[in-house]
Write a protein that binds this DNA or RNA. Structure first.
Lengths: 337, 337
DNA sequence: ATTCTCTTTTGCAGTGATTCCATAATGGAA
DNA sequence: TTCCATTATGGAATCACTGCAAAAGAGAAT
């Protein structure tokens, strides 16, 4: 079942079959119909490899992430795949597992497959590997880690806006004793969030008690321990913002252990809005960083660059939004008495 | 930078370059060395499309899952990819989103790419789509949903063994009032787990109170509500087994809301051992269904079928194991007084 | 009837590897 | 030295499709 058999059955040339498949308008409807019938009869699927070889277009887009088991990524992968399929394109997912060697292998794979573009959604990536792509005119899209240039786009996350929204919401509820559990200092996105928190508090003229600043590791265990440290002090915050949702979920456990209630005794806000947030008890108020939006922007810019040959990279900005659920409430009365 | 340029630079024919790349023993070490140097000098990567076209082997394996955002799958995807990369193969992941139409598109994609094998890790798949694969001699691996036959392997999960282990462990702790929160009846794996629970209880000669049997939806909200129903009764179980981890995590919230402690007042066991279990407070005792093991078996059987042309499908059995963490403990004293 | 234009269709030359078959080179035995 | 068996290498067909140039029709204009 190759294109020749279809051509023979439909009594046309292979070129006409090819054009029918690709929806060229240069084929008479009757001829096209005859061809389509032959295709169905033979259960024929075009060989993508041959197609890619001939045309140079692989209809494949690479998606490089650090670790699929990090709950931030599955939704990103899903959204990216969704939109790719909508455009008749496919996705090659690669986990780097934070391993430079593995990253190199991933890049090699992508190059071999002649991908039409690559979304690099992991923080670290060697300069020379990036070179390997741009050297071959393969468009790239980064998440917050590149400056736009020829063929390279960047999706910037306005972390500050998200943190600002969280803080302002808490201030509106009357909280002033607000704690913050930061992420690992090695992660630039975590550093940015912490700085944003300190900035907005300063702008609002609120002194941040040093004891209200703790650090986790962006996992639940780190959040749990950090929260325990916060709670074991004489002076406690009435609200806590965590650098990401896993940290917040870990913190929740610590709060319950201390016999405190959320949000009656303490309010809690996360960051990212992973799926699980809606299903914790109580559901977690958080700042949504829409993976769907990131995925869409990343794919679109890659697709357009490749399709329209518009090689000027652009910068897109994603605005996180506050999602209010059940883990935040007004300042406890007793604090004011 | 194609194979011809390499051949020219190394002063050999393209055939020799090809042989060198594929590690044929019919090439003198010196010649091979010269070729390898030329490859490095030109930063040459073979064109996978041309390779697949010529040889008929794509080095691509399909992995069909229902929904990557279901926490059961990311680890499966990761493990499958890991082992595939180890074997120099690649993975095309496809989300069906539980949508038959989407499934059909996924299958089409796989066929077009001439995948060397497909792991179908989703429960439902149309007969005619399966036909589409076996018709083209593409090996398939199923998760618990097929009987082995020519080119088709099955990975069977011994759910009963897992449930048995959980029940026996609870009995050992002195529990006899054991509740069970089942999954949706539409899911065969959920039905099997419930039946396994009833069976082992019967074998142990313990009457199961009908009021201790509840049903969720395999998500946290369903677990939460089911647990509330269990707790709002006059007679309460001292231990509860949930049909999966998300259900158990939802149940945890309900238990805390009732001011009860885990495991002092009530013991809780989940099923699957998703990543999050280790990080709940307290960490959830659960039955591990190793996704790594499933992924390895699935890949190996596909790879071997394709490589060794051993077309007799096999059945592999995965044994779940109990992972004891902090959510289970001895029966509360007061119950015996 | 002939020429010209325009559209549809066809034939053919790539596309980059693999692989079979033929041939050249090498080395050992006669 | 010659012959033969190995073994390494080259040449060319092949894979399934695309894209271009050219041919073949179908009308319209002359």
């Amino acid at each position: 079942m190759n294109i020749k058999e279809v051509a023979r059955l439909a009594k046309v040339s292979t070129a006409t079959v090819s054009r029918t498949i690709n929806g060229s308008n240069k084929v008479t409807p009757e001829t096209a119909n005859r061809v389509r019938k032959a295709i169905e009869a033979l259960r024929y699927y075009p060989n993508t490899n041959a197609r890619a070889l001939g045309s140079g277009r692989s209809s494949l887009y690479g998606l490089i992430i650090s670790d699929i088991t990090n709950p931030f990524f599955p939704e990103l992968v899903k959204s990216f795949e969704d939109i790719a399929v909508q455009h008749g394109q496919e996705v090659l997912v690669a986990n780097t597992n934070y391993d430079p060697h593995r990253t190199e292998i991933c890049v090699g794979r992508m190059l071999q497959r002649k991908v039409d573009g690559v979304a690099i959604m992991t923080s670290e990536m060697d300069k020379h590997l990036i070179e390997e792509f741009s050297h071959r005119n393969i468009p790239l899209a980064f998440l917050d880690t590149a400056t736009p240039q020829k063929g390279i786009s960047n999706i910037r996350v306005n972390y500050a806006a998200g943190i600002d929204a969280a803080v302002e919401y808490l201030l509106g509820l009357g909280h002033t004793a607000i704690g913050f559990i930061a992420g690992p200092t090695s992660l630039s996105s975590a550093r940015i969030r912490k700085r944003a928190f300190l900035n907005i508090m300063k702008r609002k003229g609120i002194q941040v008690d040093d004891r209200f600043l703790e650090q986790g590791n962006h996992r639940t265990d780190g959040g749990h321990e950090a929260m325990l440290r916060l709670l074991n002090q004489s002076q406690r915050p009435t609200a806590v913002i965590a650098s990401n949702d896993l940290t917040a979920i870990g913190a929740m456990g610590a709060i319950f252990e201390h016999g405190l209630r959320i949000p009656q005794d303490i309010s809690l806000i996360g960051f990212d809005d992973i799926e699980l947030c809606a299903f914790t008890q109580p559901a977690l108020t958080t700042v949504r960083l829409s993976r769907q939006e990131i995925a869409k922007l990343a794919f679109r810019t890659l697709y357009n660059t490749h399709q329209l040959e518009n090689w000027d990279g652009a910068e897109y900005v994603v605005q996180p939004v506050l999602v209010v659920r059940k883990s935040t409430g007004p300042v406890p009365e007793k604090r004011w008495s």
